[in-house]
Design a protein around this nucleic acid. Structure first.
Length: 584
RNA sequence: GCGCUCGUAGCUCAGUUGGAUAGAGUAUCGGUUUCCGAAGCCGAGGGUCACAGGUUCGAUUCCUGUCGAGCGCACCA
């Protein structure tokens, strides 16, 4: 019986117990309040938990809150968990718990191990998290890195909350940007052939394009050569529209190369996708599926989606294009789905993509987008509504771009110009762990100032080491002890009673609530902050108490406590995709 | 011009159904190791929560306005 009590002990239980006490007291006094709130006071001097119930009731009853609080307290049944109650401040009821309830948590954590902190609130609902989804037209940069770190951590957190999570990367392999990349590669290839090319300024400038061209030239020599005079008769002049010029070049390339154009297109796509995949894998970011935009066209789904919209009367023609009447669904203007030249817009395939996500049976969709796409939300949700889907099932999580600072100045970031810091460079400089942690330490919708010089020169000051150091310290102590950690499950945790010990145990007790809050708010940064709290409580305890004592009972109790601490640190770091080193 | 997101300590940021004396890191200053890892711990100073109104027992939090910042307003993705 005692054993059962141990196994189920949690903060949830404590909170339910306390709200139950309040509930009983309220009924006893003949009052009524449907929702009973319990909060953790900021100040330790305000108890372990506090209720504002009297303040809430005061308004309706037109009585002084302190007087109501006193009445409620009088009627409250006694509890073996509660050491003291008091009325404080404007009319708060503060609860002070017996410190001895917290050590009960230690064997719970030691038993649950990597399961500690998880819950089943997701009820096996399936949820698709789409993130990164950068165009495969060049290396990932540090802005993509933030979306990757956020999305991957979020997916892990949702998984820990009992959702069935599907991680997906949407590959934009069908659009104009890919054509520009294919063209860029071919032009660089012609340079390899010895031609002098007037390389368009709005084509991809990065050195990786040259590298692809060189690889193709090394393998196929002049097989794809064509005389530039045949397709670049006039260079770009002031009165020419740059985009039109680029499109004309793409058209010429397709005409001259014919099927060989597909080779360049595919080569560039495969190359960049492979690079991207490897980069993310090294960053600890894995996907269940890389979803090709092209397949939406090949399967006819885009056309079918537009037909659905058309049948409902949501499409119309104007100026030679076909428009979706998104203004009927909350958007500020109507949007083109098929251009005058017959090509579908990105929006058209995106509607099809979102429809298909729902058709695949996912209960919920989360899109992780760069915050610069926020204006895009109303039209996607509007389109879902228009084809009869529940747009509420889609949540768009916006991630602000990381703003880079180099030499105290904002660093330019443009894929086209090739002036950007890649994710790979960042990882090499500060390490995967520091990068992952730094990315999710901020609320995702906040701008992130990423000082490269600071990150590079003082990577040891990164807060991730504070947490990893706590983990390593524990490993070190347990290692010096040398005993069998499995035996610590039977330790007399009840011997833990010092202020530092209790404080540490409370941070461990809070961890499951953090995991569920992080899922509810789609906020991995909550986990990062909670881990800092755990580490801080541990470091303080470490400096105040000795672990490797002569007294076997107390020694094992404390070792059990730090083993539990290590478990929580490891569980949290794992959610954030950060390693748990045994030494630093 | 319109829309979205923001404005918290010198700096970078937490603070979530509105709660008590607004917190942490960093930087600055002062302590701390014959002892399990000092990448640690303990302490000090540092604030008109951009500004002005409003809602109420109570506002950093909700509403309105002003100022300031970023982003968006394509037959690009």
């Amino acid at each position: 019986m005692y054993k059962d009590a141990i196994v189920t002990f949690s903060v949830n239980e404590v909170i339910e117990h306390l709200t139950g006490l309040i509930q009983q007291a309220i009924q006893e006094t003949g009052l009524y309040q449907d929702v009973i709130e319990l909060e953790k006071p900021r100040e330790a001097t305000h108890g372990d938990y506090a209720s504002n119930i009297a303040l809430k009731l005061a308004k309706a009853l037109r009585k002084p809150p302190r007087e109501l609080a006193e009445r409620i307290l009088q009627a409250m049944p006694a509890s073996s968990w509660v050491a003291k109650t008091e009325v404080a401040g404007a009319g708060f009821i503060n609860f002070y718990l017996h410190a001895q309830i917290w050590p009960q948590l230690v064997p719970v954590i030691l038993q649950q191990k990597q399961e500690y902190g998880k819950n089943s609130s997701g009820k096996e609902q399936s949820i698709l998290v789409e993130f990164v989804s950068a165009n495969p037209t060049g290396p990932l940069h540090v802005g993509h890195g933030r979306g990757a770190a956020y999305g991957a951590s979020l997916a892990n957190i949702l998984d820990a909350n009992g959702y069935r999570v599907w991680r997906e990367y949407y590959v934009n392999d069908a659009g104009r940007q890919m054509d520009i990349l294919a063209l860029s590669t071919w032009l660089r290839y012609l340079e390899c052939c010895g031609e002098r090319i007037d390389f368009p300024p709005n084509a991809y400038q990065g050195t990786y394009v040259r590298e692809m061209a060189e690889a193709i030239y090394a393998q196929h020599a002049r097989q794809y050569w064509h005389d530039p005079a045949n397709f670049m008769p006039v260079s770009l002049s002031a009165h020419t529209d740059a985009d039109a010029h680029l499109d004309a070049l793409i058209g010429s390339a397709k005409e001259l190369l014919a099927v060989d154009y597909v080779y360049f297109h595919q080569f560039a796509l495969n190359e960049q996708l492979a690079d991207c995949r490897q980069d993310l894998a090294e960053f600890g970011v894995q996907f269940d599926q890389w979803f090709s935009e092209q397949t939406l066209f090949d399967s006819g789904l885009v056309q079918r989606t537009l037909n659905m919209l058309d049948e409902q009367g949501h499409l119309y023609s104007q100026d030679g294009a076909i428009w979706f009447r998104s203004t009927h669904f909350g958007d500020e203007k109507d949007r083109v789905v098929q251009r005058e030249n017959g090509l579908f817009t990105y929006f058209a395939s995106d509607i099809a993509y979102h429809l298909y996500k729902l058709e695949r049976g996912f209960d919920r969709l989360i899109d992780v987008w760069g915050a610069d796409h926020h204006g895009y939300i109303p039209r996607v949700k509007g389109a879902l509504k228009a084809i009869g889907c529940d747009a509420e099932r889609l949540t768009v999580a916006l991630v602000q771009f990381a703003v880079l600072y180099r030499n105290g100045q904002k660093a330019a970031m443009s894929t086209r110009s090739g002036e950007f810091v890649t994710l790979r460079e960042l990882r090499a400089e500060v390490g995967n762990d520091a990068a992952r942690f730094f990315y999710v330490l901020r609320k995702s919708d906040q701008h992130l100032d990423f000082d490269l010089d600071l990150a590079k020169s003082q990577s040891n000051d990164n807060p991730v080491y504070y947490i990893q150091y706590a983990h390593a310290r524990i490993c070190s102590v347990l290692d010096q002890w040398g005993g069998d950690t499995a035996l610590l499950l039977n330790a007399e945790a009840g011997l833990l009673s010092s202020e530092h010990e209790i404080n540490l145990l409370k941070t461990l007790a809070d961890y499951p609530q953090t995991v569920s809050a992080a899922a509810r708010e789609l906020a991995p940064h909550l986990v990062a902050y909670a881990l800092k709290e755990v580490a801080a409580a541990f470091h303080a305890c470490y400096n105040a108490e000795q672990f490797l004592l002569e007294d076997a009972l107390l020694r094992e109790a404390r070792l059990a406590m730090i083993l539990a601490t290590r478990t929580v640190l490891a569980n949290g770091l794992t959610l954030l995709g950060i390693s748990c080193p045994t030494y630093l």
